[in-house]
Design a protein around this nucleic acid. Structure first.
Lengths: 200, 200
DNA sequence: GTCTATAAAAGGATAGAC
DNA sequence: GTCTATCCTTTTATAGAC
């Protein structure tokens, strides 16, 4: 693994574990086994390392997140819940300290520069686009007048909020209850489609 | 206003504007017009100022948040949406940089000490308890088998997630679409109650 | 309880040889 | 591209007079 990549990987881990502000450049150097001079050769400053990390998340969403989550799952709506199940696994495996790396950075950085903010937004947009595509695949089971973009975003916001609650309360049950509510929401939508009713 | 209160108020504002880690003790001293010696007379350290801030939020939820939001609103379900409208106003008034002060701290602090974590959890618990109480008031319009605690938490998680999205994209529309989805959810629940159907 | 001065450490970033 | 040494600023916290 080349030096630049080692730095990005180390920073990715550290920003996720401790946040951006609580991670020092010394932390990154120590974990990546790189010297100060090398890091500043590749990156003008700490903020540019963050940009590299956010680009890596953006470019890796398919391979790192979606593909593993959807392995062996064919049904489009089940793919959405399989994605949520992936987050549940992260929560359990970290004893409920898991935080979505993008969501945590989005709330930690109060005055991000435009490039950073755009990358955070792009990461969220890719996530919802992937969910929205599954809703399009399942179109015949959902109400014809459904706002698919809004529902895809709703899944993301519910996931982010639930991760926050599970983490704060140190209890996966908060995440599970969110999933149950979303399941109920989808059940009511498909019921509405089957009944051929006008919008509720 | 006494010194201790001035410190808490200044810190409350600063933690909300810049976050905990990005606020220095010097920032708090400057805004509150207090000297170093006085601050450390009242608080052992910066973290204890945070504890004071979280206690103030916890003790002030009724007066600072719920009462203003519910002024002139009688219907229990509308009170829930009036609370969300309050957040919408904050978002608009801050040009979409608004972040929920508790939610932001919950994600920024990756290894909070037990007292801080418990206070964050207590703040969330009070919020959902207030929503849950409105759901109890509206019980006759909702399905009998509804998990009211889960729905109250769902409202909180959706709000937190939507505030995150609106802020990251710098666009209230993300918040508005979440509210529309929640409205649809409530509409489907009340329709289910009126139809007297079994759980979807 | 409040004031000023300052200690002690950590942080981001740079210099310059190799 | 990599190495070591180091500068400079910021930050939390303390000392001790009043």
């Amino acid at each position: 693994m080349d030096t630049r990549t080692r730095i990005i990987v180390a920073a990715m881990e550290l920003f996720w574990e401790k946040g951006f502000n609580s991670t020092s450049v010394a932390d990154i150097l120590s974990r990546s086994q790189v010297n100060s001079g090398s890091l500043y050769h590749f990156f003008p400053g700490k903020q540019d390392v963050l940009i590299g990390v956010l680009e890596a998340y953006r470019d890796g969403i398919g391979e790192m997140l979606l593909a593993p989550a959807w392995d062996g799952v064919a049904d489009p709506i089940e793919k959405i819940f399989a994605l949520l199940a992936r987050y549940r696994r992260h929560i359990v495996e970290t004893d409920c300290v898991y935080g979505c790396p993008i969501g945590s950075l989005a709330l930690e950085l109060h005055e991000p520069d435009p490039v950073v903010r755009a990358l955070l937004a792009a990461n969220f947009a890719n996530w919802t686009a992937a969910v929205e595509a599954r809703l399009v695949e399942a179109a015949e089971r959902l109400p014809a007048d459904l706002d698919r973009k809004a529902l895809a975003e709703f899944v993301l916001t519910a996931m982010e909020g639930a991760v926050m609650q599970a983490r704060t309360h140190r209890d996966v049950a908060y995440f599970d209850r969110m999933v149950a509510m979303l399941r109920a929401h989808f059940a009511m939508l498909t019921a509405r489609r089957r009944a051929g009713l006008a919008p509720a």
